[in-house]
Simulated assay, not measured.
Amino acid sequence: MRILLVEDDPLLGDGIRAGLRQQGFQVDWVRDGEAAQRELRGEPFAAAVLDLGLPGVDGLEVLRTVRLAGVELPILVLTARDAVPDRIRGLDIGADDYVVKPIDLDELGARLRALVRRSHGRPREQIRAQDIVLEPASRTVYRLGMPVTLTNREFDLLHVLMLNAGRVLSREQIEQHLYSWGQEVESNAVEVHIHRLRSKLGAELIRTVRGVGYVLLPRVKQDESSASIRMRVLAWRQR
């Protein structure tokens, strides 16, 4: 799960980034409001952690600007301003949640996971598709009630596909969700991880839509043809 962190304090920002990475997040970090506006408009983050006390363009102005530009990803405001009117103002402008400094990193991670789940219409802690259950907080996966061991990257890929179940994701979109800035991505990395997930979780879990990408269907009929799957996927995308 890829997160944008907007924090100008180098010590606090480094601590937040390290803490969220330990919880399995991919974290990209910028330190001013102008960079935040640019990245929030141009990159497919799952959520953002936005400090209000930024140099130049402050956090409230960043929030107002990106919401007016149509940016809909969940934004959690991080601030030392604990007055109720300040929190109300941020929420009215477009913040999805508020955390007042000093912060607890475990709570911050839990709030981010909840925001991302809800943004995909999944309020429950567990994510289910076919016979697979994924628990983001503990980073565990079960098939038919039995635990399945996945690498960190395999888990992240499955998480992205399950959050977007029924939606075709291209290889490029998947890479943007899985890798933060500066991470080297091999040309066939997504294909390799897809192959390993199929071997561990069943060949029918993830379907290839040729020329488009990959899709995890919530339910799959064993006798369903590739053509009918493609028609179903296109119908879902037009809803």
Rank of each mutant, 00 (worst) to 15 (best):
residue 42 G to Q: 14
residue 212 V to S: 13
residue 209 V to K: 05
residue 192 V to T: 10
residue 55 P to M: 12
residue 153 R to C: 02
residue 87 R to Y: 02
residue 183 Q to H: 06
residue 21 R to W: 03
residue 89 R to K: 12
residue 149 T to I: 08
residue 141 V to I: 08
residue 160 V to E: 11
residue 152 N to H: 10
residue 69 A to P: 03
residue 151 T to G: 11
residue 71 V to G: 01
residue 202 G to E: 10
residue 61 E to Y: 01
residue 129 A to R: 13
residue 97 D to F: 08
residue 49 V to S: 06
residue 203 A to R: 11
residue 187 S to I: 08
residue 101 K to S: 12
residue 79 T to P: 12
residue 152 N to I: 00
residue 112 L to F: 04
residue 70 G to I: 03
residue 191 E to H: 03
residue 134 L to Y: 08
residue 136 P to V: 12
residue 239 R to C: 01
residue 155 F to S: 03
residue 165 A to Q: 15
residue 112 L to R: 06
residue 16 I to N: 06
residue 96 D to E: 10
residue 58 D to Q: 07
residue 219 R to F: 08
residue 47 A to R: 08
residue 103 I to A: 03
residue 84 V to G: 00
residue 45 F to G: 05
residue 54 L to F: 09
residue 194 I to A: 05
residue 210 R to D: 00
residue 51 D to M: 09
residue 91 L to E: 06
residue 213 G to Y: 04
residue 90 G to H: 04
residue 95 A to N: 06
residue 67 R to M: 02
residue 30 V to E: 06
residue 184 E to F: 14
residue 220 V to R: 00
residue 56 G to I: 13
residue 12 L to Y: 01
residue 53 G to R: 12
residue 172 E to W: 09
residue 184 E to R: 15
residue 17 R to T: 15
residue 189 A to E: 15
residue 228 S to F: 02
residue 79 T to S: 15
residue 193 H to K: 08
residue 45 F to A: 10
residue 224 E to W: 09
residue 52 L to P: 03
residue 95 A to I: 07
residue 108 L to T: 11
residue 16 I to C: 06
residue 21 R to A: 14
residue 58 D to Y: 07
residue 128 R to M: 10
residue 22 Q to L: 14
residue 161 L to N: 08
residue 37 Q to M: 15
residue 89 R to H: 07
residue 10 P to C: 02
residue 91 L to Q: 08
residue 103 I to H: 03
residue 72 E to Q: 14
residue 55 P to E: 11
residue 119 S to N: 13
residue 66 V to D: 08
residue 41 R to E: 13
residue 34 E to V: 11
residue 37 Q to R: 13
residue 132 I to W: 03
residue 189 A to I: 15
residue 181 W to R: 14
residue 49 V to M: 06
residue 143 R to I: 12
residue 10 P to L: 00
residue 32 D to K: 06
residue 214 Y to K: 08
residue 165 A to C: 04
residue 133 V to T: 14
residue 198 R to W: 01
residue 85 P to K: 07
residue 133 V to Y: 00
residue 185 V to G: 00
residue 147 P to K: 05
residue 25 F to H: 09
residue 207 R to F: 09
residue 97 D to P: 06
residue 28 D to G: 05
residue 127 I to W: 10
residue 104 D to G: 10
residue 183 Q to T: 09
residue 84 V to Q: 09
residue 199 S to M: 11
residue 140 T to I: 03
residue 25 F to K: 09
residue 92 D to T: 14
residue 172 E to K: 12
residue 42 G to N: 14
residue 131 D to S: 15
residue 195 H to F: 12
residue 41 R to L: 11
residue 65 T to I: 05
residue 184 E to H: 14
residue 16 I to D: 05
residue 48 A to I: 08
residue 179 Y to M: 06
residue 96 D to V: 06
residue 135 E to N: 12
residue 177 H to I: 02
residue 172 E to V: 12
residue 22 Q to W: 04
residue 203 A to W: 00
residue 87 R to P: 04
residue 41 R to A: 13
residue 232 R to W: 10
